[in-house]
Nucleic acid binder design. Structure first.
Length: 237
DNA sequence: AACAGTTTCAACCGCTTTATC
DNA sequence: AGATAAAGCGGTTGAAACTGT
């Protein structure tokens, strides 16, 4: 935090002392001062302008100083999920989808951690993708999304198949990375083996190509053909 | 065209973690 | 060391958009 920010922060904290900020928020909410629901363009502009001048952080203060009738939490979320620069909205590319599948096998529902590996994507977006696409497809295949059966099928068959289609060279990496994809794991909650960290890094690097950042086409990995393939594999695994 | 059912995703909620005093 | 506030996180909800009849 730079000095200007610090000064501003302490000034505001002082202002808020006495009755706590949280208590103030509750009172404001009860009085109908705190707005909820969809953000308007005007509110977006106010928030974006304020953050561009003062920087991120101290969201309760942002809400007050910018004149927004919103909670600090709401301001933070709106900024992180919508207004922040360099965000990518819209359809996920094939590479992004495969990476999500891969990282979820490794980390589970650690959405923010997964989001860190997908530049421009938010944890909320990834979480929504998972729930609306992956969980849905698993249900249609009569599987639980976290079952060993479904996870093994993803890890051993489905992801390699998708990779082969998008980047044929990915599967001819070093033995270590291939192992990380093909080696069955006793631990159903982890893709990892001893060398998995470096192998996974190699895997992720292989998925990401220069064109991904420009990729705008609708990337359908959940095609009838692919789902049929999954269905067949699930009955044999 | 109108309605019902389904899907999507932005936003909220509540809990946990981290930072500060 | 404990209290408090802020930030972060994952789960859930509900309105809008979409699709089928």
């Amino acid at each position: 935090m730079d000095e200007m920010m610090k000064m501003e922060y302490y000034r505001l904290s002082e202002k808020e002392s006495g009755s706590s900020a949280a208590a103030a928020t509750i009172v404001e909410e009860e009085m109908g001062i705190i707005r909820k629901g969809a953000w308007t363009e005007e509110e977006d502009a106010i928030l974006a302008n304020y953050v561009s001048v003062h920087g991120e952080g101290h969201w309760n203060s942002v809400a007050r100083c910018a004149g927004l009738k919103r909670s600090g939490k709401s301001c933070r979320l709106r900024w992180l999920n919508y207004l922040r620069p360099n965000l990518r909205h819209g359809n996920m590319s094939v590479e992004e989808q495969v990476l999500i599948l891969h990282l979820h096998l490794r980390w589970g529902n650690r959405w923010s951690k997964i989001a860190q590996e997908l530049p421009g994507r938010t944890d909320n977006e990834i979480k929504n993708y998972w729930r609306t696409r992956v969980v849905k497809q698993a249900k249609q295949l009569n599987c639980h999304v976290n079952s060993k059966q479904f996870r093994d099928t993803l890890r051993l068959l489905w992801i390699p198949r998708l990779l082969e289609r998008i980047h044929p060279q990915t599967l001819t990496l070093t033995p270590s990375s291939s192992m990380s994809l093909h080696q069955p794991s006793n631990n159903s909650h982890s893709l990892s083996s001893t060398n998995s960290a470096s192998a996974s890094a190699e895997f992720e690097a292989a998925i990401w190509t220069d064109e991904i950042m420009d990729s705008e086409f609708e990337a359908a990995i959940w095609t009838d053909e692919n789902i049929c393939f999954l269905q067949q594999q699930l009955t044999h695994i």
